[in-house]
């Protein structure tokens, strides 16, 4: 039953979209703070418009193409690591975690 609920959530695209958006948002905000950047400095650094930067910082919606996401990650000092994991492996791991809890 526990695995089933998790599986239902993990099967929804929005779960992953919010997760990836959140990771990128944090990387960008951390980079801005570490480098004492303002919004316009970030726009110049990422080579995107002020409007797009505002959209990222205020709405948290990245919604860029994959190549732009990779460019942004590299520009904020991160290597984007992407992997596909078999659903069955994740669900077994989740079940093990639930037993530990």
């Amino acid at each position: 039953m526990k695995v089933n609920k998790r599986e239902q959530i993990l099967n929804q695209p929005s779960y992953w979209i919010e997760n990836i958006n959140g990771l990128l948002y944090n990387a960008i905000v951390d980079y801005m703070e570490e480098h004492n950047m303002k919004q316009k400095d970030l726009a110049a650094h990422l080579n995107i418009s002020n409007g797009r930067v505002s959209q990222i910082l205020n709405d948290g919606d990245i919604n860029f193409s994959l190549d732009k996401v990779i460019q942004i990650a590299l520009k904020v000092g991160m290597y984007p690591s992407f992997k596909l994991v078999k659903k069955s492996d994740v669900l077994v791991e989740d079940f093990d975690n639930s037993l530990v809890k």
């Binding site: 239902q8 959530i9 993990l10 929804q12 695209p13 929005s14 779960y15 992953w16 979209i17 919010e18 997760n19 959140g22 990771l23 948002y25 944090n26 905000v29 910082l57 205020n58 709405d59 948290g60």
Partner: peptide
């Protein structure tokens, strides 16, 4: 609706791992 509920649960998961999100999220 279920997809968006999963999205909101993802947001709760992110913030419960002490990561930041904008106020719109």
């Amino acid at each position: 609706i279920f997809d968006k509920i999963a999205g909101a649960l993802s947001i709760i998961e992110i913030t419960s791992n002490l990561l930041r999100l904008p106020k719109t999220k």
